[in-house]
Structures are given as structure tokens and as C-alpha cells.
Design a protein around this nucleic acid. Structure first.
Lengths: 149, 149
DNA sequence: ATCTAAACGGATAGCTTTATCCTGTTCCCA
DNA sequence: TGGGAACAGGATAAAGCTATCCGTTTAGAT
């Protein structure tokens, strides 16, 4: 239901949010998040165009968040790479429906709205702060590095 | 976010729910719901395999609902053609996460659960009964036939 | 200045979804 | 019992998503 791209983008930003300040190479992010690195580069570029991350070229470059984890919501990330297309007008293009959705599409759009709202309310900071057995993206409970090998 | 197939399937069952008892040809359904008829045939076949509709071959055949509109929920229809894949285990296959989702995937899965719940609570009967300016799938407010030409 | 590591960008390939077409099969009716 | 109407199902095609590869550009370090 959510695209692979969304999944990858979320993993990447959560990882970056766990390393604010420092910039990470796409290779590092790819390893830690188990995302194909060539494809991740595209996804990160999308996030860059949306103004969420900054890509620093050249040696010792990498990508880093442009905002604090408190300021970034899941919804922003989703919007950047694969926006939720709300239903704003009748998909059948029935003239008489116009701007008003029929009961069917009203319900479907309401479901989309639920997701949007849930995602709008969740920041990266919340995800990192949540007490949990399993740290986001991390194979080692309680520790916050995957690539310490 | 929802596939085209889901959209088509929902249109079809809502249409059929508006004509309980009688069976309609895929051609009729296709016209009324503005779905490509060859593709709709596949979708309807999927609904048939799921036991939601029955396809009667031969002359004066057609498709009809196997249950009353009160008994069919949107979720059943979605499940039949393109199920919502809930997140049941760590997508990164991190051993330490096991059955327990990390905060990120917990949130994403919660969003999926919201949609499932909303769809589980909605029956076709409700959609048809809802007082609205615009009748489902119908271009003529207050009337319930599109193909009266 | 040169070397090197990194993001950037385009070209390409495979897979899945969406869509079409055509043939077969079934069923009712005359 | 033959014919037509309708679903069933396979083959095929178009489009989008996912993924890979490779050359280019950039920037820092030496």
C-alpha cells in the first residue's frame, strides 16, 4: 500500500535523525538501512529537492538533515517522495458530482485523511524517543549503531 | 495509494449493490462505472474467486452479488482484489526485532490498521443509504440509473 | 595543482500493474 | 439441436516502479 520508495525514504531519514549534526554517505545509510545504495541515492536526491536533506559533494561529503528531528514529520517525508493523492473530485468525472464526492469516494478519501493525519502528527524525534525493546533500524537493542563492525 | 484495481472493484460492487437481485453484464457494469470493460472482467473474476459475486455464463447471464449489501464491507472487497499488507515483522529482517516492530514500522502499521478498521466498518448498504447530493456512481442526483439512455 | 571520495545525472533493464485482444467455454432460447 | 450471448482465460502490450550501471561534477586534502 505504501511504495517501496516511501519505506526507503523513511528508513533513511530515521537513520539520519539518529545522527544529527554529522553527515553520512549514501553508502553508510544504505548499509545501515539495508536499502540498495544506487536506488537510495535517487530517493535521497528526492528528499534533497524537497528541502529535507542536504547533499554535500566532494570528499568527506554526505547527506544530512536540514531540520531537527523535532521539525520533520513522517508526512513531510512521504510527501517528498510519493505523495498521498487525496481524492478531491469525482474520479468518474461526473459533472453533477463536481466538487462534492459521492458516499463511496467520500469514505475512501476519509481513509486517506486518517493516514495523513496520523503521519502529520508523528515527528522523527518521537520515533527515536519512543521507549521500545527495539531501536529503530538497529539490530542491537539499546544501542544505536548498526555499522559498528 | 490504493491501486486502480481496488478503485474499479469498489465501483463495481457499489453498482451491483444498487441492483440486488438482478444480474448485470460486465458490459453494463463497465459503462456505468466508466471502467475499461476487458479489465473489469478480470477484476470481477477476482471478486468471483473470493466468493463475493457470482458470474453466470451464457445468454442472459451476468454478474450479481452473492451477499446482501448489508453483509459486504469495503474491506472484503479490498481484500479480494488487492489486500492491505500489514507489517507483521521487521522489514529489515533484523533478528533482534523479531515479532516486535520498531517504533517506525509500528507507526506505519498503525496507519494501515486505521484504514483497515475504517473499511471494516463500512458496508455497501451504508454507502447506498447515505443521504447525499450525489448518488454513488450516478450522474443524476436523486436517480439511480446511469445507463437509462 | 592534483588526487580522491563523494553526490549528481542519464541510460538502461527487469518486474509489476494496468489494459487490450482473442479464443474457448458455457448456458439459454428458439 | 443449433445459434447467439455472456463469462473464462491466455497471450500480449503499454506504462510505471524498482533497481543497476556508469560517466560527470564537485569539493576537500595533500
Amino acid at each position: 500500500m505504501f511504495s517501496q520508495t516511501v519505506e526507503y525514504a523513511l528508513r533513511a531519514v530515521v537513520y539520519l535523525a539518529g545522527h544529527v549534526g554529522a553527515s553520512r554517505t549514501t553508502e553508510q545509510v544504505a548499509k545501515a538501512t539495508k536499502v540498495p545504495h544506487a536506488y537510495l541515492a535517487k530517493v535521497l536526491h528526492g528528499l534533497s529537492r524537497a528541502g529535507l536533506v542536504h547533499g554535500q559533494r566532494g570528499r568527506f561529503g554526505g547527506v544530512s538533515l536540514l531540520k531537527t528531528p523535532e521539525e520533520i514529520t513522517i508526512l513531510e517525508v512521504v510527501k517528498a517522495v510519493d505523495p498521498i493523492r487525496r481524492i478531491t473530485s469525482c474520479p468518474l468525472e461526473l459533472a453533477s458530482h463536481g466538487i462534492r464526492l459521492c458516499p463511496l469516494h467520500r469514505r475512501v478519501d476519509n481513509a486517506l485523511a486518517l493516514v495523513e493525519d496520523a503521519f502529520r502528527k508523528t515527528t522523527l524525534a518521537e520515533i527515536l524517543a519512543e521507549p521500545s525493546e527495539s531501536v529503530p533500524l538497529c539490530d542491537f537493542p539499546g544501542r544505536h549503531e548498526l555499522e559498528q563492525v
